[in-house]
Design a protein around this nucleic acid. Structure first.
Length: 297
DNA sequence: TTGTGTTTTATTGCCTCC
DNA sequence: GGAGGCAATAAAACACAA
């Protein structure tokens, strides 16, 4: 076994401390007689007691061991014996010293690694913090730009309204003239409508189910002058298709005007009357064709 | 001087390798 | 099975403040 038993330790101790021990203790002459007189176990116990006394290595020994450790932290048997001989130590002591030294080195290395990892972590943490701040700043900037864009849209729509109000006043004259023409035409046309069947725009609207978008369009752009067309002229449906919505035998005589969705229905005995209104949205390419259903009881 | 914490030396038990 | 390494630990030696 590699283990040093008590006798090994004693032998090592005696061999290394041989002369001084004997002289200082003064038992050199009686030592063998004493060993002979005691039992072996007692001898071992005594030897253990003596060997337990740890002696620190001298500065010279430690320096030499450190120097060898720097060359190679593993100790080959040959080097161990050589070192032991040079430093007046037991090979076992040299081996233990290297072993403990490796353990200390490992502990230091772990501390260094921990320090490096900690430094790296702190650096990464700082980077992350900086990135987070930049991100927040960019998000805030984006928010401000969005708000600004929204505000600009609102402003532009207001300016469009204002502009339209101006043009609307200009158009009123033509509308009135149209109404005038209509009333004149009404009188002179072949329409012999019963005005009890004429619906006002409010009544008509009660019968409508408009989609939200159309409702919004109506609310927002009802001030605009729509361009009214006959179904034959403009329709999202084909001319034939749209015509199918109307009574076959009588094409609608449509008289409508905006604003106010005021529609005058043609005299008709059929249940449903359908018109197409095409609304052009100013400053856009959008146009909306609204199909009005009117139920006639 | 003494209590306490740290360092160093040494032991023990377990493991791997040859 | 012996040699050697390693982790855990004991214990002596040492440092230092109160």
């Amino acid at each position: 076994m590699k283990r040093f038993n008590s006798s090994d330790s004693l032998a090592a101790f005696i061999s290394s401390e041989d002369g001084t021990q004997k002289t200082s203790q003064g038992y050199s002459g009686d030592f063998q007689a004493m060993l002979d007189s005691i039992e072996e176990e007692d001898y071992i116990e005594e030897a253990n007691h003596v060997s337990e006394k740890k002696r620190r290595l001298t500065l010279h020994q430690v320096k030499a061991l450190e120097k060898n450790f720097e060359v190679d932290n593993k100790l080959e048997p040959e080097r161990k014996l050589k070192l032991a001989e040079e430093l007046c130590l037991q090979p076992r002591q040299v081996a233990i010293w290297f072993q403990n030294r490796r353990a200390r080195w490992k502990t230091k290395q772990l501390e260094r690694d921990y320090g490096n990892l900690k430094a790296n972590y702190e650096a990464l943490k700082l980077d992350y913090s900086n990135l987070e701040k930049k991100n927040e700043a960019l998000a805030q900037k984006a928010k401000e730009l969005k708000a600004k864009l929204k505000q600009e849209k609102v402003d532009s729509s207001h300016s469009v309204k204002d502009e339209y109000h101006v043009s609307e006043s200009d158009n009123n004259a033509s509308v009135h003239s149209q109404n005038h023409d209509f009333s004149e035409n009404k009188n002179s046309s072949a329409i012999t409508e019963d005005h009890s069947n004429v619906s006002t725009s409010n009544e008509l609207m009660n019968c409508f189910h408009l989609t939200d978008s159309i409702a919004i369009m109506g609310n927002r752009y009802q001030v605009y002058q729509p361009h009214l067309t006959k179904p034959e002229e403009q329709s999202v449906l084909g001319a034939e298709e749209s015509c199918n919505f109307f009574s076959v035998d009588q094409a609608p005589t449509l008289h409508c005007y905006f604003p106010g969705l005021c529609c005058i229905l043609p005299p008709h005995n059929r249940v449903y009357k359908i018109w197409h209104l095409r609304i052009l949205v100013p400053f856009t390419v959008a146009a909306c064709t609204i199909i009005f259903f009117y139920h006639e009881d």
